[in-house]
Design a protein around this nucleic acid. Structure first.
Length: 422
RNA sequence: GGGGAGGUGGCUGAGUGGCCGAAAGCGCCCGCCUGCUAAGCGGGUGACGGGUGUCAAGCUCGUCCGAGGGUUCGAAUCCCUCCCUUCCCGCCA
């Protein structure tokens, strides 16, 4: 969330930022409530100070042999304070509610735009492979090779669930290992294995709640949520903590399943291993000092790109325009891998910097130096990478005319030397 | 699931109705001392919000002792509910 003082001092910036994202922001209501609140606080605290003083006086007089003197007036004073307090609390609650609904303001380097067409391709890597036959989509290849079983997945859990078997399951596991090894051994991330369900407070901390409850799976028992991405548990690792400034930047990587209701995407990508209620990703998360978070974003994007490069997959990097960014993001890049069988790009990573937006919600701070005041960290995350679509791209890119798949060199070690599937 | 103990500042840990935002220690900051380092000595050191102020320092008021409610003129301290930690027993991968 944004600081109330920031909204008070720069309401026009907040309005403009929300407008660029195409999102509503209750700025006027917030300003009015803020004023009301400060009026009430002043009045309440004045009376409370008087109450305390007089109360101490009652104690002194009681010890001096005058028990009970002055207590009736105090009781009256107390009820006035309580009435004011109740009103102030109501205003506070509404203020808190509204603050959580104000979107983050995009960074100035973020281009204007309303949607997908306005995103800016900042670079491409690799050449899409040329085929002397018509490349098949991954779902045809995979079903023929027996590594997808979509029909039985539906029997188990319904549509938008997938079942990997045999070489498919092995290939995804190999990809997962490759990603984790790159992150931990070459890019300096500490691996974590977090819970797959979290408290409501964690979802609020990352900005998934309260606005987007419909996108998540809710576990009624314990009021928990299945994580939509490892971003949620990993970012919340340090919720309500004050980190030592020397520890920053902190970098974590986590492999987890992710669950999403995909409530807004009926009919979209229903075919294939693309858009699922459950899928897994290797997620990169970073915590930095404010002044170097944008550098960290570039680094993080590079770390995700390194996976695609290692696999020899053609991709593009796009800077998201304001209108295509999420509620909580400050600046965001997408990585799209080329899938020749589908003849389209697939988004395999979304790398975002949130500035202090999440850190404020989750109360994640650091002490810049000994004796200095705590400050909010900046948080970042990005997939490195989403497993299903990366697998799709590998399968489609390395297919042969006979329907077999050549295993990319970097994966062979993870597959005990296997160089071909099928 | 049953029973016991407990949750206090960056950390450890005292504190059972007013003199407690909270002893003491650690850590940290400033100064003294010191050839250097260490030790020693003295002082300082929470967060958040309001007011005031040169969007400064400072001053000032308030809130916060797991969370929420209650009793009381007055609560870290008493009562209730919840959450969490821990120990013993049971159960279980």
């Amino acid at each position: 969330m944004l600081a109330l003082a920031f909204i008070r001092d720069h309401p026009e910036l907040v309005r403009a930022g929300a407008a660029r994202k195409g999102e509503p922001a209750p700025v006027d209501e917030l300003l009015a409530l803020d004023q009301e609140r400060r009026r009430l606080v002043g009045e309440e605290e004045g009376l409370r100070a008087e109450q305390r003083q007089r109360s101490a006086d009652v104690g002194r007089r009681a010890r001096a042999g005058e028990p009970g003197a002055g207590t009736t007036e105090l009781a009256r004073l107390k009820s006035r304070v309580q009435a004011l307090e109740a009103r102030r609390q109501a205003v506070d609650a509404e203020l808190d509610r509204l603050l959580l609904l104000v979107p983050n303001v995009p960074h100035p380097s973020v281009p204007d735009g309303a949607g997908d067409d306005d995103n800016v391709v900042v670079r491409t890597w690799g050449e899409p492979r040329r085929f002397d036959f018509t490349p098949r989509p991954h779902y045809e290849l995979g079903e023929r090779l027996g590594f997808f079983d979509f029909e039985r997945a539906v029997k188990l859990a319904g549509s938008r669930f997938a079942l990997l078997r045999g070489p498919g399951a092995r290939l995804e596991r190999a990809l997962t290992s490759l990603m984790l090894d790159l992150a931990t051994r070459e890019h300096g991330y500490e691996e974590v294995a977090p819970p797959y369900m979290v408290h409501r407070a964690c979802m609020v901390g990352t900005g998934n709640l309260p606005k987007f409850e419909a996108d998540a799976f809710h576990v009624v028992e314990g009021d928990r949520f299945l994580i939509p991405t490892a971003e949620v548990p990993v970012t919340n690792l340090y919720r309500d903590e004050i980190l030592d400034g020397d520890r920053l930047p902190i970098r974590h990587v986590a492999w987890t399943p992710c669950w999403r209701s995909e409530a807004g995407a009926p009919g979209l990508d229903t075919r294939g291993y693309i858009r699922l209620h459950q899928f897994s990703t290797v997620e990169l998360v970073a915590f930095t000092r404010p002044e170097r978070s944008l550098d960290e974003l570039e680094r993080l994007v590079g770390n995700a790109e390194a996976v695609l490069q290692a696999l020899g997959l053609a991709y593009r990097v796009r800077l998201m325009c304001a209108g295509d960014m999420g509620f909580a993001q400050w600046k965001k890049y997408d990585l799209d891998v080329w899938a020749p069988g589908l003849d389209r790009f697939l988004e395999v990573s979304s790398c975002s910097c949130f500035a202090d937006f999440q850190a404020r919600r989750a109360n994640i701070r650091f002490r810049p130096g000994p004796g200095e005041r705590p400050q909010f960290v900046h948080t970042l995350n990005g997939s490195g990478l989403a497993l299903p679509r990366t697998l799709d791209a590998v399968v489609e890119t390395y297919q042969e005319a006979d329907g077999s798949i050549v295993v990319p060199q970097v994966l062979r070690g993870y597959l005990h030397g296997e160089d071909r599937i099928g």
